[in-house]
């Protein structure tokens, strides 16, 4: 079994492998150690409940994970769905808004490009909210360094954790199924690893099936999540009201 096979496949399906550890370079050594290390919080009794009680602990060994999902959480789902729709179906994009940053539009068919850049500076100077941007990203160019991603990670044991970044991560627009090592010393809080560039060794890799039509799937995922949250909110409000009546 080679190191390539760890990187190129679903690690939950890698079983019973032994490595010939002679003659490995430092990086290879690192990968194998991380792979072989005991899975994170593996021996907690009643895992799901206990994991969220683990407050502010430091990871004591290198851990290998695969990336299941990367979600931008600095931008509303609505705005992200809008952006996907523009890419996936430019003819039907909503045209009722000036886009202050050209980043929202990235299609090659110039015919369907809606307004490139507008000198909004002036309008902004004088406007009292004439352009209501409540829904747009707070992720303008100079703000990009503050973008936060919520990354869903899976260990070979199948256990799933979240991770967030405190500073920009160069690899964050990676393929789903990419492998990475979270290094010892990284902070962990209630199921969430807190990452920065130096706490991660990114290994790359891809799971083809997960990445097929990725944008369409991500868009559908966001829509479903938005709907779900909406319904939950309505129910919540309903129950609150009932309580008030009682």
């Amino acid at each position: 079994m080679s190191i390539a096979s760890i990187i190129s496949q679903d690690i939950t399906k890698v079983t019973n492998i032994t490595f010939n550890k002679t003659g490995l370079n430092a990086r290879e050594q690192l990968i194998i150690n991380a792979f072989e290390n005991e899975a994170w919080l593996n021996n907690l009794p009643d895992k799901t409940n206990k994991v969220v009680e683990q407050k502010c602990i430091k990871v004591d060994r290198d851990l290998l994970f695969q990336v299941l999902m990367v979600e931008q959480i600095s931008i509303s789902k609505t705005a992200q769905i809008d952006d996907y729709n523009i890419k996936l179906d430019p003819k039907n994009q909503k045209v009722d808004r000036l886009r202050a940053n050209g980043t929202a539009i990235s299609n090659d068919v110039s015919k369907y490009k809606v307004i490139t850049q507008l000198d909004m500076e002036d309008s902004d100077n004088f406007s009292n909210g004439a352009n209501n941007n409540t829904n747009l990203s707070n992720n303008s160019l100079n703000n990009r360094k503050n973008t936060v991603y919520k990354i869903t990670l899976q260990a070979k044991s199948g256990d799933i954790f979240f991770a967030i970044n405190t500073s920009p991560l160069a690899w964050v627009s990676c393929m789903l199924g990419s492998k990475l090592i979270i290094k010892a010393g990284t902070l962990f809080n209630r199921g969430v690893f807190v990452l920065q560039e130096s706490s991660v060794v990114f290994l790359g890799g891809i799971n083809r099936q997960w990445n097929d039509n990725k944008e369409t799937k991500l868009c559908a995922y966001l829509k479903a999540k938005l709907d779900q949250e909406h319904k939950a909110n309505i129910n919540l409000k309903g129950s609150r009201k009932r309580k008030a009546v009682q």
Binding site: S76, N138, V148, K150, F162, V192
Partner: peptide, 9 residues
Amino acid sequence: KGHLFDRLS
């Protein structure tokens, strides 16, 4: 970091 659309984070 402004507003984040995820409570846990």
